[in-house]
Amino acid sequence: MKSLLANKPALWFLFLFNLVVALLASVAVDGAQGVMTGVGMGVVSVGAGVALLAGRGQRA
């Protein structure tokens, strides 16, 4: 699992896919379920984005 999360294409996929799902879920699903789905997927997207930015500084 660690090697998968260190892979840049996998991080880009997690970032973009979860960002799109978070935006769509908050619009398409009514009530608390839509809000919580959007928040949960947004957190995963932000985590992947932070990992991408952290990996930028480690280039040699």
Rank of each mutant, 00 (worst) to 15 (best):
A32D: 13
V44Q: 03
L11W: 11
W12A: 07
V43G: 00
L52N: 07
N18R: 00
L23W: 15
N7A: 13
S26G: 13
V21W: 09
F13I: 12
A6S: 10
P9F: 07
G42E: 01
L5H: 10
S26H: 04
L11G: 05
G55A: 06
G49K: 01
A28F: 10
A22V: 08
L23P: 11
A10K: 10
M36V: 07
Q33L: 12
K8I: 11
G34S: 02
G40V: 12
N18I: 05
L52W: 05
Q33M: 08
V21I: 11
V21K: 00
S45V: 15
S26D: 09
D30G: 14
V50F: 00
A25G: 15
V44R: 01
L11C: 12
W12F: 04
R56V: 08
V20G: 07
L53R: 00
T37F: 09
S45F: 02
P9L: 09
V27N: 14
V43S: 01
V50Q: 00
A10H: 13
G49W: 01
A22S: 07
F17N: 04
L19W: 08
V43F: 05
A28T: 07
V50G: 04
Q58L: 06
L19R: 09
D30K: 15
W12G: 04
R59V: 01
G47I: 12
M36P: 05
A32F: 14
M36A: 03
V50W: 00
V35D: 13
S45K: 07
G38L: 10
G31L: 12
K2R: 13
L19N: 08
G47Q: 12
A51E: 15
V44N: 06
L53P: 02
R56I: 11
V29F: 05
L53T: 00
W12Y: 03
G34N: 01
V29P: 09
T37M: 11
L4N: 11
